[in-house]
Design a protein around this nucleic acid. Sequence first.
DNA 1: TCAAAAGTGTTAGTTTTACACCCATGA
DNA 2: TCATGGGTGTAAAACTAACACTTTTGA
Lengths: 228, 228
Amino acid sequence: MPIKQQIKLTVDAVVFGYIPKEGIVVLLIKRTIEPFLHSWALPGGFVRDEENLENAVTRELLTEAGVNINYLEQLYTFGMPNRDPRGRVVSIAYFGLVNPTNYKLAASSDAEDATWFNIKELPDLAFDHATIIDLAVKRLRNKIRYEPIGFELLDKKFPIADLEKLYETLLDRPIDRRNFQKKINHLGILIAHNEKQKQVSQGRPAKLFSFNEEKYFQLKKDGMAFEI
Amino acid sequence: MPIKQQIKLTVDAVVFGYIPKEGIVVLLIKRTIEPFLHSWALPGGFVRDEENLENAVTRELLTEAGVNINYLEQLYTFGMPNRDPRGRVVSIAYFGLVNPTNYKLAASSDAEDATWFNIKELPDLAFDHATIIDLAVKRLRNKIRYEPIGFELLDKKFPIADLEKLYETLLDRPIDRRNFQKKINHLGILIAHNEKQKQVSQGRPAKLFSFNEEKYFQLKKDGMAFEI
DNA sequence: TCAAAAGTGTTAGTTTTACACCCATGA
DNA sequence: TCATGGGTGTAAAACTAACACTTTTGA
């Protein structure tokens, strides 16, 4: 029996960034087509017939916002029959991380505008995108405790205090500076550099560190558990 | 511009059970249609136009194997362009748990046969179903440490030793009986019954317990973390 | 020399692990 | 009365949490 499905497939990306003085931000674009014309929405779009899903996401991120993604994983598939006024559209949502200071956002023909919004001050959103972002925020807050994804949001070289502030922001609780540092150092996944942070404000300049990915994978294979 | 997608959507279910003397088992059906006619495969099938995804899964489980699922969550969406010889078929895989002793599996017209296979002795499988099961097994092993889903695999009333053996099987390491019991009791999510296990073999009969779901949700809301 | 932020160590409390003897039951 | 599995407590070790003073820098 031939299958005559009318179901359409899209992908959507929830891309988070971290801006130290601002907090956690998410990338939104302003739609240039109906439905929800001129509404804010997640970057995304229809999956092409022979395209794999990750390609569809990275393609849409590049064409709609000029963003080259750093870290990308599948989040969840949304399939409620009435989530899209055009008919049955199932969307596979992805979860991404970038360091927003590396990008100049480029709104292209596919989007009127593309900007970072603080996750605490989101505008009205198209479709069920508010729900999707909610879920992605939960995933981020959870995942950062068990996997070293926080580094994707920071500069390659960073002072430990930046990492700590990121964790304080995401976990929404104060963290003891000394204990945090001890814990991170004890994991043995940071490389200390002989460089100091360029002075931003006052005070003693901090040493810079970077994440040692190879070492991490080695340690993980040996049974080490990353946990903050 | 109208969208002319040829992509088709299916759901597949990885349903696990626990048989104390056997270990962790997964539900497979024998296909009655091409492709992979007569191969073992995960229960699943095409999503109907106006049907939500969970409904599609529970419908297929019921018609293909006569199973009423206990616990169901979305696992992952598989979208590699060549995963199905019929063309582009994207499949949303679900992860389910049942107590297999509650079911008499019923192979129906949609499946030649439906049986439980030990996850250590899987047959050759249709499509990319081996990959899907791999991922589901990882999810199960991981999830059982942070969420009280183990209870879904046991009888409503069970001796603590059964729960402990389940954890030993899944985590693949010995667990100290006394420490395990202390930990579980300390969580305060079990109800002790004034019943003893009917004698299966020799030895002192064990007290029976059941999972206190309400209490668990209350404690969780208050910040308690379930962790084994 | 002052203000700001970085660097660093010790102690108490809590949690986790290791470990062994007695009890209830059926054969 | 023996074999089998169930029930239970304590002490050492590891980990986590709390806490404050000194150093480096620029203004």
